[in-house]
Simulated assay, not measured.
Amino acid sequence: MHVLLVHKARLPVFTAGGTERMVWSLGKALTRLGHKVTFLLKCGSKCDFAEVLPLDRNKSLKEQIPRGVDIVHVQTLPDFDADNDFDMPYIMTEHGNATTAPTHRYLNTCFITRDQAARHNSDQFVHNGLDWDDYGPIDLKRPRTYYHFLGKASGPDKNVRGAIDVARAANVRLEVLGGHRLNFKRGFRFTPWPSIGFNGQVGGAKKFALMNGSRGLIHPVRFPEPFGLAITESLYFGCPVFGTPYGSLKELVGGEFGFLSASASELARAVAENAFEPRRCHEYARDTYNAMNMARGYVEKYEIILNGGKLNASPPWLTDKSVDLLPWNA
């Protein structure tokens, strides 16, 4: 099978970019399964295991599809128009909560968790997976002396303020990966407490080293998170997840691997009492959310489409388009 993977970003990435890491891992895994992969990506992309073509956003997708492609796999491309651009097999993966993007109208839309699919009136999903070989060695015997927050700290939906409140109430150190002590991006925020460390946007060896020393992820998001690679990355490093019961978290974080609550005091109590087993968290993420599982899941979807089927009987649509922050009891 020859798969064209289309994404509007530049690959590979080394810091932020969850969708980008997922697409990269999918390409590698499909290749390992014996399929041919071609990437159609933002100019400047490079790859040593598949051909890369430059994506021109000023041209229709039809004009840019090379010969011999069996199926086109598009990642949340807002100006993608399957009805008019071309008439060949395609699949669209929706990575967000699609309130405005036109992906709802496509019968071959696939989602990334069961929860996200259900909220879009669909039952079609493939869990994100990562190529764990890219993450280096995991040291489960290393002393772990702090917790971490991983995400864009300027976003109120990510709720870094809540994570800080939880850490301070639990009397633990928190390392913020993805933010700065002084922030003006979305309202003024200054964090004076020395027990809260800020590392900016980190990637590669620095990110892995910080996660290798963490006792857990504090993740009190205030929106229905579609997936959250921060969750599975943290579990892979042996870190249980202490978060809110919204979006994907109830699906990804079972009782053996973390604690969920919308109450800062309850999360702080769970953090202080942390008795989760790092090795169990690591093995769960390694065996469940890996790139090969994801690739096999997509190959099943590809085969349905190539055999003339559709993933959805009717176009998916988001059942709740509210943009209000979900409850958080500080």
Rank of each mutant, 00 (worst) to 15 (best):
N121F: 05
F198G: 05
L177D: 03
Y146G: 00
N199I: 01
G203H: 05
L130D: 02
A117R: 01
A169G: 01
D133Y: 09
F125C: 00
G204T: 08
G204W: 03
G155Y: 10
G129Q: 11
N121A: 13
D123N: 14
H148L: 00
L174Y: 05
F190L: 15
D157C: 08
R142V: 09
A167W: 02
V202P: 09
G162Q: 07
A169F: 04
K158I: 11
S154K: 10
Y147T: 00
A170N: 08
R173M: 07
D157K: 07
I196Q: 08
Y147F: 13
G204S: 06
H148A: 03
K152F: 12
G136A: 05
F188K: 09
L210N: 00
D134I: 07
F188Y: 13
H180Y: 12
V166N: 08
Y147N: 03
A209S: 09
Y146P: 05
N159P: 05
G162I: 10
F190Q: 10
G179I: 04
V126Y: 05
W132D: 03
A167T: 00
G178N: 03
H148Y: 03
F125I: 05
T145M: 07
N199A: 11
Y135E: 07
V166H: 04
F190Y: 15
V166T: 06
F149D: 05
H120T: 02
S154E: 13
L130Q: 08
D123W: 02
G187I: 12
F198D: 03
L150T: 04
D157Y: 10
A205K: 12
Q124W: 01
D165L: 07
G179A: 13
T191E: 15
K152P: 00
P137W: 14
P143A: 09
K207S: 02
R168I: 06
A167K: 08
G155Q: 13
N171E: 13
D139V: 04
L177T: 05
K158S: 08
G200N: 04
N121R: 12
P137N: 11
I138L: 09
G204V: 07
N159Q: 07
F184V: 11
A209G: 06
R189F: 12
A167Q: 08
G187K: 15
L177I: 11
F198E: 02
